[in-house]
Design a binder for these strands. Structure first.
Lengths: 244, 244
DNA sequence: TTGGTACAATGGTCTGACCAATTTCTGCAC
DNA sequence: GTGCAGAAATTGGTCAGACCATTGTACCAA
């Protein structure tokens, strides 16, 4: 079998060249997010560079969140890649304290509200059905498990970001989600976290169906407000414990 | 809403461990940007991992712009590093096309509105004076030059981000602004870009002084809306040119 | 159908070597 | 002593080949 792309590399600055070649390959083969890339060993052979170099290049992409590596399985495309793409990694200090988490939540509230508004404006019938399905899965999980389920909840919100038509929303929010994960390894002791937010999900959906941008924005703000309240309660609990 | 725990266990995360160890080292030694890190070989020996692993870890940091490697010289710290940092890699479809600009503007609108609302809630007398001063400088520049001045305008908005009490607003926005800076100078050939937004600056300030969060949010939304209109007009102009 | 087992494929790590760019040292000319 | 050219050491970049750990798959037995 002869692949048209993936010609040998010649210049110096190998790993950069590898990334360009790989970007070309991805575009040429029209690979979608979720598709599997060629094996490191295959790339190494095709590009006539060592596997080390291939790995360094892929490590770059992995750090930028463009690609995901699964040991024993393969390397999978995680974002859209094209040769002329502007990568802008933001890094800043963000501790695990209450204040930092509150800051990220404020960013999230801002983006969530805007995404909801845009979503209300732009969602067509098929997009609405997509969101509705995510909503119903979430509600089902809520009732069967008697509590908020993070995965299904996340799917619902993610569907809104996607339908907003602006990929930046999803990128920024999902990057911040990692901060949440870190934080929740040391929970604040709040049980049923996010429980209060449940009813607002359907309200938000209804405003989107009605193409009511400002209404959707308002509901999204209320939803995040309940989460902030939970967080504040958790912080209060911690303070109580500290006093003992 | 958030993850309840049960994260996947990780048996192999050596390069991550290397980065944590390195972050600790940097903090312990109080290394500043520009300082040189230990050699790859030294790190390899000290951390009891192979040089390959050290290199993979450093490649991650290099990709995030935290570190710079100079062959024959060494690896140098390029940014501030701490153990718990939030990495937020964003990727744009590069370029000066209308759609990309619109996407960044949508993010900006989201953050601007939220920052304005928080600002209205949190601004004390001295903060209000700070914002007022920036506003007056901007207005002065507007009248003397008969047009919006990007620098003074940017200073005004930046003061709002700062008073919001959440550093993330300023960091995210300024990073995006930087990426498109050259383009914002003369966007799409629209003269008097941002001219229509002028009166809304003072209105926004007045809502902040009144500690009216929702009012401030609304004015910020209107302000960005005028910029979007300008952008749309520019896109229409370009399209006209294309047809010739 | 279920569950287990062997095997192949794939990413992760290691070792040791050599290359290329840079820095530092050395010794000679003046 | 000074200045400078060349040698030597240092350091990141690449390579080759090996082995480990995890995953996916095909096959077999209960």
């Amino acid at each position: 079998m002869i692949d048209p792309g993936l010609l040998p590399i010649q210049t110096t600055a190998r790993d950069d060249a590898v990334l360009n070649a790989l970007a070309d390959f991805v575009m040429q083969e029209e690979l979608q997010p979720g598709d599997r890339l060629p094996t490191e060993r295959v790339l190494s052979e095709r590009l006539k560079v060592s596997r080390t170099t291939v790995r360094e290049a892929l490590t770059r992409w992995e750090g930028l969140g463009l690609v995901e590596r699964l040991q024993g399985s393969g390397t999978y495309l995680k974002g859209v890649v094209s040769r002329d793409m502007l990568h802008m990694p933001l890094t800043f200090a963000s501790g695990n304290d209450f204040e930092s988490l509150m800051h990220t939540l404020e960013i999230r509230r801002a983006l969530e509200a805007e995404a909801a508004a845009l979503c209300a404006l732009r969602a067509g019938p098929s997009e609405l059905a997509f969101i509705k399905q995510k909503l119903e899965v979430m509600e089902e999980a809520f009732h069967s498990r008697a509590g908020m389920s993070s995965d299904e909840d996340w799917d619902f919100h993610q569907s809104i970001y996607r339908v907003s038509g602006n990929p930046l929303f999803e990128q920024i929010i999902s990057a911040m989600q990692e901060a949440f994960h870190r934080f929740w390894e040391h929970p604040l002791g709040v049980r049923d976290f996010g429980h209060a937010s449940f009813p607002y999900h359907r309200k938000l959906y209804e405003r989107i169906v009605a193409h009511d941008a400002e209404g959707a924005r308002a509901e999204a703000l209320k939803l995040i407000a309940t989460v902030e309240d939970d967080l504040r309660r958790g912080a209060a609990n911690l303070k109580l414990l500290d006093l003992k």
